[in-house]
């Protein structure tokens, strides 16, 4: 008896066509731009690209980017863990509202994410006069960049943790309580091991966004070369000055960061699927 086509499968030729179409779509649409970045960066060879990256302004931009990420990620990680804890393990009035508010920065335009800080701390902002009087510069300086990045990357860790912790429920923590564990002990020994890969994944995404953010920091930055430019902003400046190779070189570095983040995230997901302790 010849095995026919299962009634819930498409004929083989159609399957091949669909796979081909999807591959074409993703390749043409997603991977090609990536390839373009690297091609343009290395258009004149390795030397000019390397030179663009080792230029003092570029180095300063890299350093600033790292600094911003180094602050934004831990703060949002701590906040995200706290939020995930109280939202996932308890029921209280206003819980869904809290959840929606945490998601808010995610659905707001990056430009607005920067705008709000200018409205607060800019020269004509709410606290503008007070800051000027005390000679404190927030907007158009590094602190402004921090705040904008914090706003934009706010939900990342919380988003990855909350559904997972909700799924896991309170059972383990309640058991730990009956056995006499304190809050911190419970968190460190019972909860954390269960969520560490998701936490890492959320931190990776948070970091990628913190380093790559453009719109929000563009608004609050003074665009002062060597001082208030992160890598994405530096790319824009170079592009606007028609220094295409240099612009693409820095962009390529950022693209590499994205690829590493994706690879790490994929490995993490494969690991949890294969049953590494979640």
């Amino acid at each position: 008896m010849a095995p026919g086509v299962s009634p819930t499968a498409e004929p083989r030729w159609l399957r091949r066509l669909l796979i081909g179409a999807a591959a074409l779509l993703l390749g043409l649409f997603l991977l090609l731009p990536l390839a373009a970045v690297f091609t343009e960066a290395l258009r004149r060879g390795w030397a000019p690209a390397w030179q663009a990256l080792s230029e003092p302004d570029a180095v300063a931009a890299v350093r600033l980017t790292l600094l911003v990420a180094a602050i934004a990620v831990p703060v949002n990680m701590a906040g995200g863990v706290a939020a995930a804890w109280c939202i996932a393990k308890f029921r209280f009035p206003g819980r869904s509202l809290l959840l929606a508010l945490i998601e808010l920065p995610f659905s707001v335009s990056p430009v607005i994410s920067g705008l709000v800080w200018v409205l607060l701390f800019g020269a004509q902002g709410w606290f503008g006069p007070w800051l000027q009087a005390h000679d404190v510069q927030i907007v158009f300086a590094v602190p402004g960049l921090m705040l904008a990045t914090l706003f934009v990357t706010f939900p990342f860790v919380a988003r990855t943790l909350i559904p997972l912790m909700q799924d896991q429920g309170r059972g383990a923590e309640e058991a730990a309580a009956t056995l006499g564990a304190s809050g911190w002990q419970t968190f460190r020994r019972v909860t954390l091991p269960d969520i560490r890969w998701a936490l890492l994944s959320g931190v990776l995404l948070c970091n990628a966004r913190a380093m790559g953010e453009f719109g929000a920091v563009s608004v609050v930055s003074g665009h002062i070369r060597g001082e208030t430019n992160t890598m994405p902003l530096h790319v824009e400046i170079l592009y606007n000055e028609y220094q295409f190779v240099a612009a693409f070189a820095v962009a390529a570095l950022l693209a590499l960061l994205a690829l590493v983040t994706l690879a790490a995230k994929t490995l993490l997901e494969r690991g949890t699927r294969r049953g590494l302790p979640a």
Binding site: M1, P3, G4, S6, P7
Partner: peptide
Amino acid sequence: AGLDFADAGTV
């Protein structure tokens, strides 16, 4: 029902 197929034999 035709939801699966035998390796040998007839229906």
